[in-house]
C-alpha cells in the first residue's frame, strides 16, 4: 500500500495544486496499485516513515503564516525523511518554505525550514505565464509544461535545479533554471497543475515510490491521449518542438 500525504490541504491549496495529489492517486488506482490518501492539517500528527509521497502546495501570505509554526515543529522529522529518500513534490509557496529564507519587499527576512539550499527574494514584478522546462530523469530528457505565478525570485545555492527553462521566467527570470531537486525532493513553481498533464513525470514519481518500498516498479501503460494532447498543445503554443 502506498501512502500519499497532502500537508495542510485546507490552507496550502492555491491554484488547483491538489490536482497533483489527484493525479498521483488516480494513476496508481488505474493500475491497481493500492494507495491511500492522508490529509494532514494543523496540529495533526503524521509519521513521515509511513509516507511514500508527500505533497506541499502554496498558500497566500496569510495562510503561510498560519502554518509556519506547525511546520517548524515537523522540521527534524522532515529532514530525516528527506535524507531517507522520501518522494516530495513542493510547489510554489511550498517550494519556498523548504528553503533558507524569504525576504519581503520591506526587507523583512522570514526564515524557511532551511532544509534545502536556496533563498527567495520578493520582487515588485510578478512572473506570470505559461512555462516549459526540460528535465533529466535518469538520463531520460523530458519536457514539462505548466503555469507560473510568483512574485518571489528564488536563487539556488548548492543544489541542482529541477530543470532548464525552455520558455517562461523560472526561478528568478535570469539564470534559466526552474525549481530545485535534492535526492527525491522535487520543487517547482509550476502550477497547471504540474502532474496531470505531465504524466511521464508523474509515473516517474510513482516508480520512485514503488522502488523505495521494494515493490514491483514496472508500470502498466495507460491510455494517455488527453494528457498528451494537453501537454502538446502547450508546447506548440510556446513554439517548442514536441508540440503539433
Amino acid at each position: 500500500m502506498l501512502t500519499v500525504c497532502h500537508l495542510y490541504p485546507d490552507l496550502l491549496n492555491l491554484y488547483g495544486d491538489r490536482g497533483n495529489v489527484i493525479a498521483f492517486l488516480q494513476r496508481c488506482r488505474w493500475r491497481n496499485i493500492p494507495v491511500q490518501l492522508l490529509e494532514v492539517n494543523l496540529g495533526e500528527t503524521v509519521d513521515f516513515n509511513q509516507v511514500d509521497f508527500l505533497f506541499l502546495g502554496g498558500g497566500s501570505d496569510r495562510e503561510q503564516n498560519l502554518i509556519s509554526d506547525d511546520l517548524g515543529q515537523r522540521k527534524v522529522f522532515l529532514h530525516q525523511a528527506i535524507e531517507d529518500g522520501l518522494i516530495i513534490l513542493a510547489i510554489c509557496g511550498g517550494y519556498q518554505l523548504l528553503g533558507q529564507y524569504y525576504r519581503t519587499l520591506e526587507n523583512e527576512v522570514i526564515p524557511g525550514l532551511g532544509l534545502l539550499d536556496y533563498y527567495t527574494v520578493a520582487s515588485t514584478k510578478r512572473f506570470i505565464g505559461n512555462v516549459a522546462i526540460e528535465l533529466n530523469l535518469d538520463n531520460q530528457i523530458l519536457k514539462v509544461t505548466g503555469f507560473e505565478n510568483h512574485a518571489g525570485k528564488t536563487h539556488l545555492g548548492n543544489i541542482e535545479p529541477l530543470g532548464n527553462l525552455l520558455s517562461g521566467y523560472g526561478n528568478n527570470g535570469k539564470d534559466g533554471t526552474e525549481g530545485a531537486r535534492y535526492k527525491n525532493v522535487f520543487c517547482s513553481y509550476l502550477h497547471g497543475p504540474l502532474l496531470p498533464k505531465n504524466s511521464v513525470f508523474t509515473d516517474h514519481l510513482i516508480k520512485l515510490a514503488l522502488c523505495r518500498r521494494n515493490m514491483n516498479k514496472e508500470l502498466i501503460s495507460l491510455n494517455d491521449e488527453f494528457e498528451k494532447d494537453a501537454h502538446k498543445l502547450m508546447l506548440s503554443r510556446l513554439k517548442l518542438s514536441g508540440g503539433d
Binding site: Y15, G19, I128, N149
Partner: peptide, 8 residues
C-alpha cells in the same frame, strides 16, 4: 490565462 482553477 491560468486554468489551474479547474482542479479546484
Amino acid at each position: 490565462q491560468d486554468i489551474s482553477w479547474l482542479w479546484d
